[in-house]
């Protein structure tokens, strides 16, 4: 059963130094507040897993939390480079970052394989490309029925998955609607799960019988953090702050500007700052 607790207590309970952690979200519902809490708690030597590392992983890499990155597309979507990610790879700042690099199809299949308790994922992919030359975890298997050669990658089984969702009820059942990304698969593939939510409610409310609900017994800890996905968004609560994504380029480009921003906006703040962003970007219900 999920325990509902403060964000600080939840991060301390599920995430340790050296863990493999998937902080997932596909443009929508990216758990920024939880990532900031991990940075404040000084987590180190993490293996960060995510299909689309964006600003939160740029921040964690720049603050020295990560030893390794497992990913398939690292950029600021629609804007350009992730400068902290690039600085780590190109110049080893603040330290060297090990990479395990994939394509989206591989990562999506690898999460699904993890959720399905399979050792590896199989799919049609990686034909004619160079990534298998630099990633020994990309291999080929023959179909036992037709002999067709297919791509294989290990299942993703994170120690911890952290996601942001719309709401949870008081029993700890979690609702996700809108763009779903790989969050359900990442949760079911993980040993421990932290979900931040916009609100904890008595009843999850009107929804389709096919809505994505994570039963409480699939989740370790829940923390209520209104606005916790900002500058990403939460469907029906607030819009994406595209201006922030555009502005991040300038903040992250320079090491000192980045560190000063992190000190003022993350290290010296708490999760309560996210609520004001939610209020500013609120969408009509």
């Amino acid at each position: 059963m999920a325990h509902i607790m403060t964000l600080g207590a939840a991060v301390a309970a599920v995430l340790q130094d050296g863990d493999t952690v998937a902080i997932e979200g596909f443009t929508h519902l990216i758990p920024h507040a939880a990532a900031h809490e991990a940075i404040r708690q000084g987590r180190r030597d993490l293996t960060l897993v995510r299909m689309t590392p964006d600003i939160v992983y740029d921040q964690m890499i720049g603050m020295g939390c990560a030893r390794k990155l497992v990913f398939s597309w690292g950029g600021n979507p629609g804007v350009g480079s992730l400068h902290r990610f690039r600085d780590a790879i190109e110049n080893g700042w603040p330290h060297r970052l090990e990479l395990e690099e994939h394509a989206h199809a591989a990562m999506a299949n690898a999460y699904a394989a993890g959720a399905a308790n399979l050792p590896f994922a199989v799919f049609r992919g990686y034909l004619g490309v160079d990534l298998p030359k630099v990633n020994p975890n990309i291999r080929r298997v023959a179909c036992p029925f037709t002999g067709e050669e297919l791509a294989a990658v290990p299942a993703l089984r994170p120690d911890v998955t952290i996601i942001h969702a719309l709401r949870a009820d008081r029993d700890g059942n979690v609702l996700i609607e809108g763009i779903l990304g790989v969050q359900k698969e990442a949760v079911l593939a993980a040993k421990r799960v932290l979900v931040t939510v916009e609100e904890v409610v008595d009843d999850l409310g009107p929804r389709s019988p096919n809505a994505v609900v994570l039963p409480t017994w699939t989740v370790t800890a829940i923390a209520e953090v209104p606005g916790g996905a900002y500058p990403s968004y939460a469907q029906g609560y607030y819009a994406r702050d595209n201006a922030f994504y555009l502005g991040w380029d300038k903040i992250a480009r320079d090491r000192d500007t980045f560190l000063a921003w992190m000190k003022a906006n993350v290290l010296e703040q708490g999760p309560e700052v996210f609520a004001a962003h939610r209020a500013r970007l609120a969408v009509a219900a």
């Binding site: 689309t52 990913f71 398939s72 597309w73 690292g74 950029g75 480079s81 992730l82 990610f85 690039r86 790879i89 190109e90 690099e101 994939h102 394509a103 989206h104 199809a105 799919f123 049609r124 992919g125 990686y126 034909l127 490309v129 990534l131």
Partner: peptide, 14 residues
């Protein structure tokens, strides 16, 4: 040891 690290594959190969 890239001179410029670009975003990577994303969905493109498939």
């Amino acid at each position: 040891a890239p001179a410029t690290r670009l975003p990577g594959s994303g969905g493109a190969p498939e």
